[in-house]
Amino acid sequence: MNGISCSINALNGLYDISGVEVGQHFYWQIGGFQVHAQVLITSWVVIAILLGSAIIAVRNPQTIPTAGQNFFEYVLEFIRDVSKTQIGEEYGPWVPFIGTMFLFIFVSNWSGALLPWKIIQLPHGELAAPTNDINTTVALALLTSVAYFYAGLSKKGLGYFSKYIQPTPILLPINILEDFTKPLSLSFRLFGNILADELVVVVLVSLVPSVVPIPVMFLGLFTSGIQALIFATLAAAYIGESMEGHH
């Protein structure tokens, strides 16, 4: 009994040090509504990083690219490749959407893993990757839904809705259900992966503060990149799917 209380005390101390804060937010009031300030702040930083680096690197394009321009050209070619393989020949107009989706999620995830957000103390909650808040991921997933509906409707008009009764009308419920499961799976996959990754790192750091968390951190970087790629690829695949002709 004594031992148990001792260990509980030790754990208590660890909890004070590590300060694992899950689902606690720094609230701002905007016109009677609450917002998660920590998410907005970090997303502004991510947006600033993206816009700033893009402006600096692409300001004056050279025929023989400089290092920064070369990197951005590589990224653009990568995004075009992803969009082209998923959407097909008419991928052009969707490059900004897919590209922004990929870059925003990627930089958000990596900022959570690389930037020392925890140095900045908030009155409540803590700064972390914007993508470990459900609001962000659901916002991105809903935008994806809007995007593929728009793609299908603008390509085929009202004929788009005929895909719900193909190949047979029996599949109508499943086809309708798909429209809800797509954003749900997109948002929860991203949210769960990033949150779990950050939690694993925080818990490991609180238990073994040196060396041991490093492989997990690298795994986190890897996972973050993969999640960004998956989100962008799936968004492109949904758009391509709603644009392709049904035979």
Binding site: L40, L51, A54, F72, P96, G99, V138, A139, L140, L143
Partner: peptide, 27 residues
């Protein structure tokens, strides 16, 4: 953890703005 509020529409608007800005300066 699942505290939906005004952050969601704000993030949507931010994303769209970022998309247009990145399209103008980058893509």
């Amino acid at each position: 953890l699942f505290d939906f509020n005004l952050t969601l529409p704000i993030m949507m608007v931010q994303f769209l703005l970022l998309m247009f800005a990145l399209d103008k300066v980058y893509f």
